[in-house]
Design a protein around this nucleic acid. Structure first.
Lengths: 137, 137
DNA sequence: TCTGAGTTCTGGACTAAGTCCAAGTTCGGA
DNA sequence: TCCGAACTTGGACTTAGTCCAGAACTCAGA
């Protein structure tokens, strides 16, 4: 995946740098939703001197390109989702863990008269739950 | 509303203090979703010396009681929703403004085999959009 | 009405997440 | 290879939220 992601960065007029490569690799092949700090830690395994500011800006670029999804569902920190095809999320309100929900149910559409003049881009269903670990403690 | 809300605080074993009254009044009769800081500002109009820490702890108590909803949908700060009956949200991803969506569409239910062992409490549909103000700028 | 135990509040210090910026470095088209 | 534009760095800063010890307050019971 990351090769084509880097290609796409290029198509969008971004330069290919070691830092962007490291962030792309950090996001490659994972199916959990990392926080910016976790992405930074993984990228730092590949490129130890990468700075937090660079990771943040690269994540913003990828979000803007639509290559990843920025989730601000619960907790203090945003999480980044490499799966951009429409899907829903199951969130533990107490620890912030997020699971993808793959069942094919699409979020119901929003009637135009409810849109408050806003341009709706996507809809998702968020299931608020408590995970086993948090239930036990 | 706030009278009964205070009654319910009492029923839950909480004491009635001027500070809790002020927070309850700050949330009373509004239909926008305030951030903790905005709640603090409104409460401070009623009780100028109320501290941030108190507002935060009162908001947590009310959330725990189920009297208000804590929303962490987008942006850096949580917002508090005095409407606890099931409804959906329309969010501007760029400025964080949240509108309630009143149309009667319920979020689809989550199949048990998708629940990852988590106890699902509620589901909501979140519509991600850009508001008129942000579109213009 | 008074009292005292226990609850609540305060304000300031602290933490975590994220942003900003100036200066130095690197990329890649010509 | 050269050079300008784009990118990165790291440290300071901002914002949102938490923590804590001591002071103030609430309210049940006398």
């Amino acid at each position: 995946m990351h090769t084509s992601l880097l290609d796409r960065l290029r198509l969008h007029g971004y330069r290919l740098t070691a830092q962007r490569r490291a962030v792309a690799e950090a996001l490659d092949g994972i199916n959990v939703h990392l926080t910016a700090d976790e992405v930074h830690a993984r990228a730092a395994d590949i490129l130890p001197e990468i700075s937090r500011a660079t990771v943040y800006s690269t994540l913003h670029e990828l979000t803007e390109m639509g290559e990843i999804l920025e989730l601000g569902i619960e907790g203090r920190s945003k999480r980044y989702d490499p799966t951009t095809s429409p899907h829903n999320h199951l969130v533990c309100d107490s620890c912030g863990v997020i699971h993808d929900v793959q069942h094919g149910v699409a979020a119901p559409e929003l009637p135009l008269n409810e849109a408050h003049g806003m341009a709706v881009r996507r809809a998702e269903v968020v299931y608020h739950a408590t995970c086993g670990t948090c239930l036990a403690s």
